[in-house]
């Protein structure tokens, strides 16, 4: 059995990395909001929320890297340059690979943006 499946790319894989960004964003926002609203009934401090955000961020970045690697492979590891505008299945797959790779890059940066407030904010306030 292969560790990485051979061909899993479809139209939907284009959206993998942004979907990871969305899930990470929601998790951070909902987690922090619920904690801050109910902090008195829970027996741990805000630093654990920050640790949680850190762990979630590492997980999300790893998933985006996997998606990026798959996209890079679909793009043929950059063997051919864009624009990928010939009417062939090969160019169609290369285009999908490149677009997915670019989206992975954007999502990677956006996940780091999301995590940054947790570096500097140390309490719920209010």
């Amino acid at each position: 059995m292969r560790l990485v499946p051979k061909e899993i790319e479809s139209l939907w894989t284009l959206f993998t990395a942004p979907a990871v960004w969305a899930a990470h964003f929601l998790l951070c926002y909902v987690g922090a909001a619920v904690y801050c609203a109910k902090r008195s009934s829970w027996g741990f401090g805000f630093e654990w929320v920050r640790v949680g955000i850190g762990v979630a961020t590492l997980l999300a970045l790893t998933m985006i890297l996997v998606s990026a690697w798959l996209a890079w492979r679909q793009w043929g590891f950059g063997a051919q340059d864009p624009p990928h505008d010939r009417p062939t299945g090969h160019d169609r797959r290369s285009f999908q690979g490149l677009a997915t790779l670019l989206l992975s890059g954007l999502s990677f940066v956006a996940v780091i943006y999301t995590a940054m407030p947790a570096l500097v904010i140390a309490e719920c306030n209010p």
Binding site: Y29, A32, C36, V49, L106, A110, Y113, T114, I121, N125
Partner: peptide
């Protein structure tokens, strides 16, 4: 009056969308 960290998340995404 939302928690500052919530504002932080949304501020970050608002800047990211400029990319």
């Amino acid at each position: 009056g939302l928690p500052s960290i919530s504002l932080g998340f949304f501020s970050a995404a608002s800047e990211a969308v400029a990319i």
